[in-house]
Design a protein around this nucleic acid. Sequence first.
DNA 1: GCGAATGTTTCCCG
DNA 2: CCGGGAAACATTCG
Length: 244
Amino acid sequence: MPEGPTILLMKEDLQKFAGKKVIDVFGDANFEKEPLKGEILREIKTFGKQTYLVFDEFAVRIHLLMFGSYIVDEHLQSEKNLRLGLQFKTGGMYFYTCNVKLVDLEFLSKIDWEADVMSDDWNTKTAEEKLESNPKMMVCDALMDQDIFSGVGNIIKNEALFRIGVQPESLVGNLPPKKVKELIAEARNYSFDFLKWKSQSVLKKHWQVYSKNACPICGQKLIQKNTGLGKRSSFYCEKDQKLY
DNA sequence: GCGAATGTTTCCCG
DNA sequence: CCGGGAAACATTCG
């Protein structure tokens, strides 16, 4: 379900519980949940597709993976796949079918926050340097690399590459400098379009190539194949996306 | 009913 | 020790 922008929307939904005290904890997450009781949720941070519920002595890291989901406030219908539920006086947050881990606060300080495409701290220059040091990498793998473009997922990858007219299997080192800049700019740019469209529930309507059949420019049938070391599905037009 | 899918980690093999 | 590959997790949609 989630790429970076979706996680940001989740954070907005959770935000009202910041500063509130946990009064009860549920779920089958694989750690001792008792210490969470009575703790104040100090802050909610996101890094790419990860969410951190920050407490005084530790943080809870949540990753929704492919099928994760969450609900806010509603009382639980079923405990099925409930990994973590936090009950506050005013309601609760419940996370299903996801990966939940306890991390120490030091873990947070080691995160390269500048690598998050959705963040105000996003650093174009650093991204450029990371790409430069991986010339043999295919652009499809580079975009999916969470150390370079944290938050980018398969939809953003496909749409961003279409926008800049680059074939997914192109090698990073073969791109002209101008295209490298476009790649970096569009990874972030499309992510914010994604955020806007997702929040208005019109994301799919705006897909140009992802899960589509025909090229919106020339009408030719799109290629769909698994590309790169990641073997993730790519949709592209042979005519309008150049292989570098 | 099957297969694929907005993802990542872990284990096994050569 | 490495890289690649498959498996594992688990749900929803076409």
